[in-house]
Structure formats: C-alpha cells, structure tokens
Write a protein that binds this DNA or RNA. Structure first.
Lengths: 116, 116
DNA sequence: TTTAGTGTGTAGTATATAGTACACATGACA
DNA sequence: TGTCATGTGTACTATATACTACACACTAAA
C-alpha cells in the first residue's frame, strides 16, 4: 500500500464513525488546503513534508516512522543521530541489513535493559 | 571543521606532492565545473549531491559516510535499509543515541560474528 | 615572452519541493 | 428549496537544490 492510499483508507475508516474526519476538516487541523490533502490521497502530488506527515500521524493515530517510510523519508531526529557518529551507525545498520527482525529486537531490548 | 574547509584541506594536502590535485583537475575527474568546486570549498554554495560527494571521497581517499555527514546528509543505502523496517530501526537508533561508542561497536561485532 | 594552467567572480538555468487560492459540481439535511 | 459542507479540477507561486558557462586576473614554466 502506498502513502496516499494508506492515508485515504485510514481517514475514511475513521470517518465512518466521526464526521470530523472529512478531507476538509482534517486538512484544516493539519494546516493545509483541502485540495492539497485530496491530491496527496489520490497521489496526484508527492507526499507532503515531514512536518505535515507528523501532524497526519497524530491526527489518524498512526506511527510516524511508518508513515514517513511510506513517504520515502526517514525521521530527521534519526538522521541527526546517525550524522553525529556516521561510521559507527553506518557499520551497524549495514550489518543489520540482512538480520532477521528478532535479532534486531533482541539488540534493542539488551541495550534498553542495559544487561551487557 | 565544515565540509568545504575539510575538502579544501585534504585536496591541498594531496596537492603538495601531486599536481593532479588542483581545483580544475579534481573538478574534471568528479565531473563538475572548476568554479563550482571552488565555491563548494569556500562554502559560497551548499555541499553538492550525494553522487558528487561519493566521487570526492573516492578521489581524496576519505570515508564516504563521514563526508556525507559533514554535508548534513546520510547515505541513501542506509535510508533504504531503515525505510524497509522503520519501527525496528527507529527504536534501535533512538535506543543507541546515548550509548557510548564502545557499546555500539560491541553490537556491530556481535552481529558480524553471529555469536549470540 | 608567450603559453598553459590556476583559482574565482558573475550570471544564469533546470528541476524538485511544498505548497496556496479559487472555483465548481455534487450531495445531505432542515 | 435553499444552504451548507464535501471532494476535486485548474492555475499559480515561492523557495531550494544542484548545478553550467564564460570571463577574468594571476602565476609558473618553456
């Protein structure tokens, strides 16, 4: 599923039980023109900026990192972390490229719990 | 040290022993106009595209990820890896944000050697 | 003393990014 | 039966990105 399709799907799903989720009203809450949101959903234009994607994620109750990924982007806070120690993170990420999810999750948990 | 300064420094250092490292000749080898490389080094313009930064890194014998980081960028191959599993990598990277280098290095080695 | 190479100033361009503004037809509803 | 809200078509716009093209003054070597 692409970004626009996904947004439309989620918004319409919410709309079934809440009239506040019309294109117009959502557009107003995330501070864009209704026509623009409409075009985003129909993929007549590229996905919006990170800022607007964050607002959309908030509004629709979806994960920001997932929405950004669908939009072909990576959260700017992650980029900043990587840029501070480029070789370290580059090595790590390339290393984990072909690791299964459960291996990465284990690393996340180990680091979080500090049991090294 | 900023990107432009760094490039100028490394190029001039190489130039001391090799006349092939003039602005003009390096520019030609990385396929840009000499005036443009000159401006990049003096930071009259923003750093160039990832492609040109890669060529520069190759040319000057420097690390691509470090040069990209200095230019405020992150390698597109890393972005692609993150985008494929956004929440997993987002959690991991945020988790490691405040971990010391040696802890991250240990993870890299553990994953590489597969000794889990 | 020509000539070949050097760095840089000025001016301009093509394409992408991230939208706005307004008008219009349609549908709901009071 | 008017009016209010809805989604969308069309036409722009401003700013950023990523450069090119040419000219000029200076320097070093032949």
């Amino acid at each position: 599923m692409t970004f626009g399709q996904f947004i439309r799907d989620r918004r319409e799903r919410l709309r079934e039980t809440d009239r506040r989720f019309s294109v117009r009203q959502v557009a107003q809450r995330i501070c864009v023109e209704p026509a623009y949101l409409s075009k985003i959903e129909r993929e007549e234009v590229a996905p919006p900026s990170e800022e607007k994607i964050r607002a959309l994620a908030q509004e629709l109750g979806e994960d920001v990192d997932v929405l950004l990924a669908m939009a072909g982007k990576v959260s700017s806070d992650l980029l900043a972390i990587i840029r501070k120690r480029p070789t370290l993170f580059a090595d790590l990420i390339r290393q984990l490229k072909s690791s299964p999810d459960h291996a990465i999750l284990r690393v996340v948990r180990k680091v979080r719990d500090g049991d090294w």
